[in-house]
Design a protein around this nucleic acid. Structure first.
Lengths: 112, 112
DNA sequence: GATCAATACATAATAATCTTATGTATCATT
DNA sequence: AATGATACATAAGATTATTATGTATTGATC
């Protein structure tokens, strides 16, 4: 089972930030593979969603990049800027809070 | 604190369906107020998001409507169709699963 | 050495969906 | 009489993902 895309939409950026918080630096393709592995294939980030998000986060100053070459193949590493670390904490806190709220809503008594 | 809109986007339809599962029938404005109360104001559904969603769910055959008049003021009650009840169970199950996955992702060790 | 899958980036057209603003109207309270 | 709450609806614009496409390297298979 793969989650419907609507679900991922709201959490994509926070997932990216969390991974970068844990791993210091990662490149795009690595992020897709890591998320896939960690979720048993339930979350599969598409390139068309991931790269524009990474570019947006970089443009906002939340992420910074280093480009490296592995042989002739380019790799663009992303990591959190100092400001990005602050934003990440806020986003993670908000998401944790949101999930508690959602859990509460979903656990309400069922009458049908 | 009010959750950022991105977070709500992915879960709006499921929230609506869950409320209708518990309450048999509700009208739009009532849904906004109920969600606001249940979440302590953290989730505030806007009309511009809610009504189009309700219309879409009705067009999909998931919801059915009854229009009533309270005095001269119109009220449009929504309830789950038989098919809607099945969809609702699936959506709720998917969301619960998704939240477990997200909880797992967020709880991973932090190195920074 | 040719082909395929995986790695690795990027972007553009389209679609979906929310935000913001606007509009109409009733009802209760001050 | 005016204001805020109730109650619906929709349209223009913004945002963001989907889908498709493009380029190119590398490793594995035949």
């Amino acid at each position: 089972m793969i989650y419907s895309s609507e679900l991922i939409k709201g959490t994509l950026k926070t997932i990216i930030l969390k991974l970068l918080k844990d791993n210091k630096r990662m490149y795009g393709y690595e992020i897709t593979q890591t998320v896939k592995e960690l979720t048993g294939g339930k979350i599969q980030l598409t390139e068309g969603a991931l790269y524009p998000s990474l570019h947006a986060l970089e443009a906002e100053g939340i992420l910074v990049t280093e480009t490296e070459y592995i042989g002739k193949r380019v790799r663009k590493y992303y990591s959190l800027s100092p400001e990005g670390k602050t934003i990440t904490k806020e986003k993670l806190s908000e998401l944790a809070d949101f999930m508690n709220t959602m859990k509460f809503l979903l656990d309400l008594k069922t009458s049908s």
